[in-house]
Design a binder for these strands. Structure first.
Lengths: 215, 215
DNA sequence: ACCTGAACACCGTTCAAGT
DNA sequence: ACCTGAACACCGTTCAAGT
């Protein structure tokens, strides 16, 4: 696992192949199959090991549940983005590893402490997770498959600038709103954008407290 | 493009390789490079062609902007999930194709008509897109890489049931909330779950109308 | 129980050569 | 401008054989 995460951090998830990890360990690819069933299992084990770095609040404070939930989300994002595109493994996965389970448990605890209806809390864990994963993936998308000799950030900026120019040059009669909002639309991957979406989600979740139901 | 989408629909995005598409066309893989720069460009062209199936409201009705925005989101999800895991291509991509641009334009128009502040609308398009993509990907995640001889739905159900049993057997003292909310947590991929998250997002977006600002 | 070499059936992309 | 064959440098997984 350490070797696999080393390759992940250095070159991204795509570089973590069975053959590459085996090579790094000085052996052949077939040897790994004595320890994991397949590549998917290796990836899930990597994810849960990375998730161990995520720090959770010691105990829920009912008065601050929203702030605490927001902090947890930002902490998950911080850890995920510090390990390249590991969030891709999380996307669509029902958590089973001990560390991922502890995170879900903490999120549920915070929402229940805040008075969010249990059913809403259950669904919201999933929605929140999807949002965090999606944002973490976006954040590292264009830098993930690059080789070490190009500065990833520079490459990413160049890509976004190109798109920005392209969108600005669009016919304003056909895409008036896009043209006038180009800068907001291409403000990808920033922490500000993540916080905005998080606030939207938390406002939405909180709105279920008063009326307590679905509609 | 037709051939590529044919392979996508039949066997999922992973099966859409340069070699496979070329083979389907009765030629060699190198021939494709006369028409697309690389595999990523092929994927983006596939996505925009699929996006042409998405039907948008004829014109925004300011009184019904939330319902209309919700309808658009559900329509995108419907079309994406009808083409296997094509949503994976959309994830993290800034739209540039004409059809994807038309969708973003329509979404912006609806929110602006509803009185959502422009900056919020700009960021919300991105947040909404991430949510739709993430849900569509979840919906097809475990069925995507299966070969034709196994019923994908049956396989998916078996997988979810296994996880459900595993979660139910967890120590209740360590994961009390997870154990008691197993059914809500494992209600993956349904249209109900999607609608819930969508409502959360729309409630959150609407909450910016009154106070008009960020905080 | 763990490891290995060799093989099978694949990949994306390049490039010189053709029409 | 478009297409091709052949090659390069890779993949995940299996399997018989070893320790």
């Amino acid at each position: 696992m350490e070797t696999a995460i080393g390759v992940l951090d250095a070159e991204g998830l795509e570089a973590v192949t069975m053959r590459r990890v085996a090579q790094e360990l000085g052996t052949g690819p077939a040897s790994l199959y004595a320890h994991v069933a397949d590549k998917q299992e290796l990836r899930e084990l990597m994810l849960d090991r990375v998730a161990a770095e995520i720090r959770l609040p010691a105990k829920p404070d009912p008065a601050r549940w929203r702030e605490q939930l927001k902090e947890v989300a930002m902490e998950i994002r911080r850890v995920y983005t510090s390990h390249r595109d590991i969030a891709k493994v999380s996307m669509g996965l029902i958590p089973t590893g001990p560390n991922l389970l502890a995170i879900a448990e903490a999120q549920l605890g915070l929402m229940l402490a805040g008075g969010v209806p249990p059913k809403v809390a259950g669904l919201a864990v999933d929605t929140l997770g999807m949002y965090i994963d999606a944002d973490a993936i976006e954040d590292t998308f264009y830098t993930a498959t690059l080789t070490g000799d190009v500065d990833p950030w520079e490459h990413f900026q160049k890509y976004v600038d190109e798109i920005r120019e392209y969108l600005k040059a669009l016919p304003a009669d056909r895409y008036p709103h896009i043209v006038s909002l180009v800068d907001d639309l291409t403000d990808q991957g920033g922490a500000e954008r993540f916080e905005f979406g998080l606030d939207v989600l938390l406002r939405g979740i909180a709105s279920y407290i008063e009326d307590g139901g679905r509609k």
